[in-house]
């Protein structure tokens, strides 16, 4: 059966402004605009008190200090209630000693989930899949990751993405496959023949005129 637009919602794209919202969270009513000026990772999980989600929340809590050093805030989301989120966070802390320091949206009416395309009816008609939206300080969507219900997310990759995006913004460069902070970066390709010829004299490490790397 074909899914209706109401069941799926809008699918935002990289480069678009993040859809504005005001939502009930474990830290009170929050608006997207409250995060303006900071990087924001908005991520959804299928449900509270479920095993994979619990491991992910502990992992997000573990990288939170590293994210804060990079000017990044975290905001979780599921279609559970605030009471459920609070009970789950308290249970995680009681059983594992890990405190959940970031807010979690209680998206009972699915308003935010649908605006961000977090419900994938092929996986579940009621739960959100594992989405990650990296939103920059101007509230533009810079990265979107979707994971299936069965697979927990990789925190190293999320940190790597933040480092790569911030490096790109700061230095006007791109980052190659498997890039890590400290590795060489890719110099943007030249737009003219003259620039291509000049590039080869600039001391970059070039495989050819279109693929040059440099140390920052």
């Amino acid at each position: 059966m074909e899914e209706t637009k109401e069941q799926i919602g809008h699918m935002p794209r990289i480069g678009e402004m993040a859809p504005a919202f005001e939502a009930v969270t474990t830290h009170g009513m929050l608006k997207l605009e409250d995060f303006k000026g900071s990087w924001l990772i908005l991520f959804s999980h299928p449900a509270d008190f479920t095993p994979v989600c619990t491991t992910e929340f502990m992992a997000f809590a573990k990288i939170y200090p590293e994210l804060q050093k990079r000017g990044v805030e975290l905001l979780g989301l599921s279609v559970d209630s605030v009471s459920s989120h609070i009970a789950w966070a308290r249970n995680v802390e009681e059983k594992t000693g890990v405190k959940i320091p970031f807010p979690i949206i209680a998206d009972l009416n699915k308003e935010v989930s649908l605006a961000f395309g977090m419900i994938h009816p092929g996986q579940s008609k009621t739960e959100t899949v594992r989405c990650v939206f990296i939103i920059d300080p101007n509230q533009k969507i810079r990265t979107i990751l979707y994971y299936p219900l069965s697979t927990g997310r990789n925190m190293d990759e999320i940190l790597r993405l933040i480092d790569a995006l911030q490096t790109t913004d700061k230095h006007g460069v791109a980052t190659p496959a498997n890039w890590r902070p400290g590795d060489k970066v890719v110099v943007p390709p030249p737009n003219t023949q003259e620039m291509a010829e000049e590039r080869l004299k600039q001391g970059y490490e070039c495989i050819d005129w279109y693929l040059c790397k440099k140390k920052l």
């Binding site: 830290h27 009170g28 009513m29 929050l30 409250d34 900071s38």
Partner: peptide
């Protein structure tokens, strides 16, 4: 406090 908390808190 984080800036987002301050913005929402001052609104309240």
């Amino acid at each position: 406090l984080p800036l987002f908390r301050v913005r929402s808190g001052l609104r309240e």
